[in-house]
Amino acid sequence: MITLGGALHDIRSKIQNRERISSEEARWLWHNASDAELRDLAMQVRARFHAPSACTYMVMRIVNYTNVCVAQCDYCAFYRLPGNPEGYVLSEEQVFAKLDELLALGGDLAAFNGGFNPHLPLEYYCDLFSAIRARYGDSLEFYALTIAEFMYLADHAKLDYAAAAQKFKEAGVHWITGGGSEILTEDFRRRHSKFKYTVAQYFEAQRAIVDAGLRTTATMVIGFDESIDERLEHLERTRKFQDETNGLASFLCWTYKPYFTQIGGIEIGTEEYLRHLALSRIYLDNVSRIRTSVLTQNERALEGLLYGADDFDLPIEDEVTQKAGATISLQFDKILNVARRLGFTPTYRHVPQDRAETVPSL
C-alpha cells in the first residue's frame, strides 16, 4: 500500500529530475497535497523558466466589437441574439477610440472578443485589422480573435482553417488566441455550449493557426460544474498539443463568473483557483509562461505568483466578464505593489516585442 508521504516523495523526485507527472499523479496531488506542498512543487517547475523574484505584466484592453452571437452558451451573460435591440457592432472609429485610450493609459495590447455574429462577413474583420495595423504599426499589438470565433468565421466564409488563417495573416494579424476553450472535453461542450465546435475541431483550427505562422495561446476557465477529471483532460490535451507543435506562447486560466448567466451558480474561491494554478504549472511542464487572472481574481490574483504563475495583465475593460460580475480597477500602482510585497519585481512586458519569442527547451 502506498502511503501519502511515499506518493508525495515519488512525485517530488520526478519533478526534481524534470520528469513528467501523469494525470493519475496530478489527481493524487489535487486530492491529497496541501496548499504549501502544491505551491512548492509548482515553484520548482517555474524555476526552470524564470528567476525566483521575476514576473512580468501588461496593460491591456479587451475590445468587445459585437455582442451579437448565436452560440447561446449558457454561462455567458454578454451575448444578445440577432434582432435584439441591445445588440451592437462597433464601428472602426469606435474601435480606434478605445485603442487610443489604451495607449494613453500606457498599454500596448488589445484583444478582440465578440461572438458568432451571422451578420458580419469576413471582410469586416480583415478590413478592421488591416486598418489597425496601418494606423498603429508596431506601437500596439492585438489578439485578433479567439479560436472559437475564427472557426465560426471560416465556416461562415466557406473556407478551410488554413485558408482562413492565411486571410488574417495577410490582414496584418499576428495572434489568434486560445479563447473559447473553457473546458476542453466533449461532455462539457454538450452540457453548456452545444452550438460551439467540438474539441477535435478546436485543435484542428489551432493547428492550422500555428502552421500559418501565427502566434497562439492556451486558455482555460474553471468553476462551472466540471470535475477534476475534466480539468485534467483539458490540461492533458493542452500539453499534448504543445508537445506536437510548440506553438503555445502562454497558458491563462481564469474563473467563471456566475452572475446574470443562465446557469448561475456560486463562484469558486481564490484558494481553489490558486491550487488549480499550481497544478497547471506542474502539469504543463512544456509551457514557459503561466498567467494569473487579475480580471477575475483582482488583487488576490497576484498570490498566483507564489503558486507557479509568472505573468499577469492589468485590464482596463472586458464587457464579457464585467457583465457576469467581474470588477476592474485602474489603480495599477496599487496592484503592482501587491506583487512587490509578495517578493516579486514586476517588469512591463511589451507584447509588440514578443512576436518572435519561442518556448525554451526543457
Rank of each mutant, 00 (worst) to 15 (best):
E204T: 15
K196I: 05
T216K: 07
Y202I: 11
L184R: 11
G180N: 02
D211S: 13
R207K: 15
K196A: 03
A208R: 12
T217V: 02
A208G: 07
E182M: 07
A212H: 09
T185H: 08
G178E: 00
S193I: 12
R191Y: 09
F188Q: 04
G178A: 00
R207F: 00
A212Q: 12
R190Q: 14
V210E: 08
T185W: 07
F188S: 03
E204N: 06
R190K: 15
Q201V: 14
D187W: 05
T217C: 01
R215T: 14
I209E: 06
T216A: 02
G180E: 02
R207S: 01
T185N: 03
A200Y: 07
Q206A: 07
R190H: 12
A212M: 10
F195Y: 14
R207A: 08
E186T: 12
D187E: 15
K196G: 04
D187C: 03
T185I: 06
E204L: 08
L184D: 10
Y202L: 09
G178T: 00
H192G: 01
R207E: 13
Y202A: 10
R215Y: 06
F188A: 00
Q206S: 04
T185Q: 01
R215L: 13
T216F: 05
I209W: 03
S181G: 14
G179I: 11
T216I: 05
H192L: 03
F203H: 03
G179Q: 11
K194N: 08
S181T: 13
A208P: 07
F203L: 04
K194T: 06
V210T: 13
G213M: 11
F203V: 04
K194R: 14
G213E: 12
T217Q: 00
L214Q: 04
V199L: 10
R207G: 00
T185E: 05
E204M: 05
A208D: 15
G213R: 08
L214I: 08
L214G: 01
G213F: 12
F203R: 02
T216S: 08
R215G: 15
V199R: 06
T216N: 07
F203M: 04
Q206C: 06
R207N: 09
Y197G: 06
R215A: 13
G178Y: 00
A200K: 12
T198P: 05
S193L: 10
T217N: 01
D211W: 02
T185L: 05
I183V: 15
A212K: 04
G179D: 09
V199D: 13
A218S: 13
F195T: 12
